[in-house]
């Protein structure tokens, strides 16, 4: 094997012949699977697992990837999203790695077609179904890390559901800024006990965790943790009576909801960017599949009306 020249973009493809279906060996998959069951049975608890090194950087979704590779089978249809888009570099990279190491699976960009969805930083706008599984990539699994650096101590606090220091931190924010300043990774209490870091999803996506029809699994590869929000389970963002939890606002200065310049949607999480030509600010659905779907349904409606 050492005298072969690998053509640049096919390194993995050549190498994959030497690897098991799903890249991980079956023992590694079993360990992940056992941890997944524990994570479901103890909602929100971070189950430690050994977390194998993957051929991409820690922080690039290796935790989510290990979950996906341990779950996926030839009958699955996979969707991979990063920042809401299937076409961003990291999503493409992860998807092509999974395609390569899992011959026989299907991939899709359509949420409705997917059985397994791996995502970084977003939950799809369209509500997921019972037969779908969402895997979220997690950089920092522990919501308590902002108040307690020692994992040993954090584990005790979690066990006792002692989140007083976290609440004090939120309260200090309010005193200082008259607002909770946590933008994403909003601490969310699962089933009335464990508070999780729901991964760097925006606050917009946090309500989707509550009473979700689909199972949501979270994987932190570098920190070696797996946790879960089971379906039909209470997920409540931490808040105070007088300062409620609020999702991102997309209203303009007159209080009018901004819309997506592509599809006109007025109820999705928007990306903001500056038009290179005009210098104006533009807004566009962060979830590219949802945006496409809206455009398509408008076209269909027009055709029906015409």
């Amino acid at each position: 094997m050492f005298n072969q020249t690998f053509s640049a973009d096919t390194q993995f493809r050549k190498a994959s012949a030497e690897y098991n279906f799903g890249f991980l060996d079956e023992y590694a998959k079993k360990e992940v699977r056992r941890s997944v069951l524990k994570a479901i049975a103890i909602p929100g608890y971070q189950v430690p697992y050994s977390s194998r090194e993957m051929p991409m950087g820690r922080g690039f979704g290796t935790g989510g990837l290990q979950l996906t590779l341990s779950l996926i089978g030839k009958k699955d249809t996979l969707k991979v999203i990063d920042q809401g888009s299937d076409d961003s570099v990291n999503a493409v990279n992860l998807r092509s790695f999974i395609e390569m190491t899992c011959p026989g699976i299907d991939t899709t960009t359509k949420v409705s077609e997917a059985t397994l969805i791996q995502s970084r930083h977003r939950i799809p706008e369209r509500e997921l179904r019972e037969d779908q599984i969402l895997v979220l990539q997690v950089p920092y699994p522990d919501a308590l890390v902002v108040v307690e650096p020692s994992e040993d101590k954090r584990k005790i606090m979690h066990g006792e559901a002692d989140y007083s220091r976290l609440l004090v931190k939120l309260y200090e924010d309010i005193v200082k800024f008259n607002e909770i300043t946590i933008s994403h990774r909003y601490p969310t209490r699962i089933n009335g006990h464990y508070v999780i870091d729901p991964s760097p999803i925006p606050r917009w996506d946090v309500p989707k965790l509550n009473n979700s029809k689909s199972l949501i699994l979270l994987g932190a590869g570098r920190e070696k943790k797996i946790y879960a929000v089971p379906p039909y389970t209470l997920a409540e963002p931490l808040e105070f009576d007088d300062i409620p939890f609020r999702v991102e606002s997309f209203n303009d200065s007159t209080g009018k909801r901004r819309t997506c310049w592509r599809c006109g949607c007025d109820h999705s999480f928007l990306d903001e960017f500056i038009d290179a030509q005009t210098g104006d600010k533009r807004y566009q659905c962060s979830d590219s599949d949802y945006c496409d779907e809206q455009i398509k349904s408008q076209v269909n409606n027009q055709e029906l009306e015409g």
Binding site: E26, L37, I40, S70
Partner: peptide
């Protein structure tokens, strides 16, 4: 391995 993948998925669903 292939069966165990399918069985695990079922197990995961019933646990959920």
């Amino acid at each position: 391995a292939e069966t165990q993948q399918a069985l695990f998925n079922s197990l995961m669903q019933v646990m959920s």
